[in-house]
Amino acid sequence: MDALEILFTASFWVAAIRIASPLIFATMGELICERAGVLNLGIEGIMTAGAFAGWFTVYSGGDLWAGLLVAALVGAMFGLLHATLTVPLGLSQHVVGIGVTLLATSLTYFIYRLALPEVTSPPKIEPFQPLPIPGLSSIPVFGEALFTQTPLTYLAFVSVAAVAWILYRTPIGLAVRAAGENPSAVEAQGISVTGIRMGAVVIGSALMAVGGAFLTTSAFNSFFFQMINGRGWICIALVVFGSWRPGKALIGAILFAAFDAYQVRLQQISGGIVPYQIFLMMPYALSILALILVARRATYPKALMITYQKGER
């Protein structure tokens, strides 16, 4: 097949949307944290923990949706740890974030080994099945790509709409945005900046964990080590690329995923002339490139990474 023809096939876009789904959840999670003024570098570890928690719940006999709920709760717990250390205690968001990633990852591996000491190949579960939306799914290419996905993918799109609506249309969203721009103004309204920021990090971390769980309960059907493989860090780049806006970040995630799906297909038709590692490098290189391109006009939340202490300016 021709390298350009791929772009017009439905199967390519189905794959792109599937690859985008976990990134969408996790990017929304990170976006909420950063809009409230907290950089959450725990994302990579929280996604790992979520991936394991979701899969393990189902493996132990739970429902798929129960798995998702457990993943979200586990994510929220790590979020609470991150938030406690960075918000009221004001510790370095860089160091704590890396610490949370190391802790969540190592704790996951420890529990995996403890629960399944003897397994050599990871056990499988029955994952979410595609749920075509009647009517819409028969629209050629576009409809097939968007409406023959698993329920979790639809939920990912719903989460973008929900985050956008809450951030821009509700008082609590206004408070979150203000906490990341001008915290003293929030405090002046009698709202606790600490509370808003902690809440944002907890909810955001739950979303990250759901993104991880997508991989084990929808995209694949088992958990294996290093399965997040830098996706968390890519999501941080996507938040910057999307200028901290849910809609733009969604477009970024889909573009990125399309690129990722494309490089896999290029790899197949290139016939091994170019080393496969070059293709695998491209998503990471693209993320760096995207960061450079938007850096000059990036409008950071002004209080991002700045700790807030009541009564200080």
Partner: peptide
């Protein structure tokens, strides 16, 4: 690994 990560925090 858990001990090392915990000790960082």
């Amino acid at each position: 690994d858990v001990m090392v990560a915990t000790s960082l925090l």
